[in-house]
Design a protein around this nucleic acid. Structure first.
Lengths: 185, 185
DNA sequence: CCAAATGTTCATTATGTTCTGAAAGTACCT
DNA sequence: AGGTACTTTCAGAACATAATGAACATTTGG
């Protein structure tokens, strides 16, 4: 497959950013290429276009699958598998957030929970536990909040997002109009 | 400095998570240790407690400084520098999000913007640009939204967070009670 | 069943990242 | 100035991660 310069630039950029986003260079490139390609691509096409080994592509496919970021397609009379991005950009972002939450937050949260079950033995531990509690509460809020966003329908999500700079206005607004519905602060 | 088992476990865990959070193992350990330690610690104490080289501590301090995560303190009659976490847990989380935004999103956003300025030359590019536009809009929303959250006062932020599962309720609520104030969707 | 086409695995190699420690730098005493 | 207490830097060693490609596995049409 031939890429224009601009497409090439985008694909390479995604490669460079790949590791910052939680996967590696080739996986970033592969996903970028699939995203901007109108037709699904086969493993061989990926390998040739990106100049990476066939084996590496196979690994990458496996990883992208585990992130649920791609779907496999078949063409009639063709034994090859063709790959394309799974779902909308929104869904993709959701998947990435979810995966990252699992890797970056959940393990810490469970360590903190365990830790907080024990009674502190001395002043040093008492202080430490206090800090851990703060972190715990913060992380818990973040995860709860994130899963709430995920449960939200795409339209509502979109409304909320477009609200942008208006979030704080809504809070005031709510407090003014309906004190009885107020969440405890 | 002597650590209890539990404190030790937490510090080591943060080391392991360090790279997932955007810094490396020793920096994760250093920050964790400073967090749970009631007193500010000197570079030597960090080095000895964590069994890492003095030089490494110096690099780590530099990095943590650049993230604005620690503050330097001095004790009267002591030439050493002592370090402690800068600000509250909330502020820490803000800093981390901000830094990560700079590294993980901003570069991509600016590439996308450049790319979208050019006219597509053929169908292939037209399709690709469409996808890039979607990603661009998504990332832009995320950053706008994040900076909105950062501008929010801690109390409001806390309200919003505690709202948790109520976010979607509020959206309905607003639509029902005050159609004239509605944000365009 | 075979042969051809495709997909997967994994030991080895290549690349990238982090850590150490010795040397150099700085600041402050007397 | 020379000495001491501390910090920073950076080349190279140690370690970690990713990529290759040849060997192995699987599928399918005949």
């Amino acid at each position: 497959m031939e890429l224009t310069d601009k497409m090439q630039a985008f694909v390479m950029h995604c490669g460079e950013m790949g590791s910052r986003w939680g996967f590696n260079r080739t996986i970033g490139q592969m996903y970028a290429l699939l995203l901007i390609s109108e037709e699904p691509l086969s493993a061989n096409e990926l390998s040739q276009t990106l100049h990476i080994s066939r084996g590496n592509v196979s690994m990458g496919i496996k990883e992208l699958n585990s992130w649920q970021l791609i779907a496999t397609r078949h063409k009639p009379g063709d034994r090859k598998e063709y790959y394309q991005p799974a779902g909308s950009i929104w869904q993709m972002a959701n998947r990435v957030f979810e995966q990252r939450r699992k890797r970056e937050i959940d393990p810490t949260l469970s360590l903190l929970r365990d830790n907080l079950l024990d009674e502190p033995r001395d002043q040093q531990e008492r202080y430490a536990q206090q800090r851990l509690l703060e972190i715990h509460d913060l992380l818990e809020m973040i995860t709860e909040w994130a899963s709430e966003l995920q449960r939200l329908s795409p339209e509502k999500l979109s409304t909320l997002m477009k609200l942008g700079a208006g979030v704080s206005k809504i809070l005031d607004f709510r407090d003014k109009l309906s004190p009885k519905d107020r969440t405890e602060t």
